[in-house]
Design a protein around this nucleic acid. Sequence first.
DNA 1: TATTAGTCTATCGATTTAATAGACTAATAA
DNA 2: TTATTAGTCTATTAAATCGATAGACTAATA
Lengths: 137, 137
Amino acid sequence: MLSKKTKYGLKALIYIAKQGGLGPVLISDISEKENIPKKFLETILLDLKKFGILGSKKGKGGGYYLMKDPKTISMATLIRVLDGPIAMLPCVSLNFYEPCDDCPNEKACILNHFMAEVRDNTLNLLQKKTLYDLIIV
Amino acid sequence: MLSKKTKYGLKALIYIAKQGGLGPVLISDISEKENIPKKFLETILLDLKKFGILGSKKGKGGGYYLMKDPKTISMATLIRVLDGPIAMLPCVSLNFYEPCDDCPNEKACILNHFMAEVRDNTLNLLQKKTLYDLIIV
DNA sequence: TATTAGTCTATCGATTTAATAGACTAATAA
DNA sequence: TTATTAGTCTATTAAATCGATAGACTAATA
């Protein structure tokens, strides 16, 4: 399951993307319209900024805006930034790989092979879908 | 990500299935061969018994055995029993559904629709694959 | 009746998650 | 230049979950 942080983050990004680049969007605006705790949302958007997905402007007329064309932002990237690994096991994660303590031979591990298949299956969908696909309803 | 409980549980089931029904399999046997903490494994197998996946026999010559043909046990079922929802959000879970507090209208929620698509995509694979598919290498 | 092996309850520490608090800094406009 | 707006940063907290362990108990077999 995705964390609430991830759900909130995705909803915020969809909200911002829907504005279509008409100036920065206020945290408080997103918070109210999407029913996301404001302080929590602050930390999430800050995270997205750190990863170059969002940019921000302080002061009056400030807010958050997308740094790239929504068509170039895949859902796989967003889930990885917000939630972490897409794979079901660390030993088949492409971006967050970690070996299993209990597994003496990963290449011979049946579960490893199966979970890699599941990962590829999911990735195939998540990499194709972009933020843009979500805002054109 | 799947919990260690789930990973251990799946490895144990694969181990038991590989014995091909030649009498009950000992917890200690699985624990040693698969490097799973024995006490932890006990609780996991007990869980699988509760859900009718495994049966057990006490005393000498006892142990755990499969209650059904591995060909009839889907990976989707196993992951649900061990880990919980397969869906990425509670609001699109078929077996563990819960509405989102922040969502005023689920049917109109873009994320909901997208995550339902992801769920179907994953489920399509997990329901086809059975425990048997994992033991024939 | 001794031994083997699963059952049950409970507890523990560590980590993660969700959320909040509050002081601070940058940008804008009057 | 200063009041206001709005994002930044650090930190703390409460609750939940995770991974693991302890120990007493019960059933089955030889």
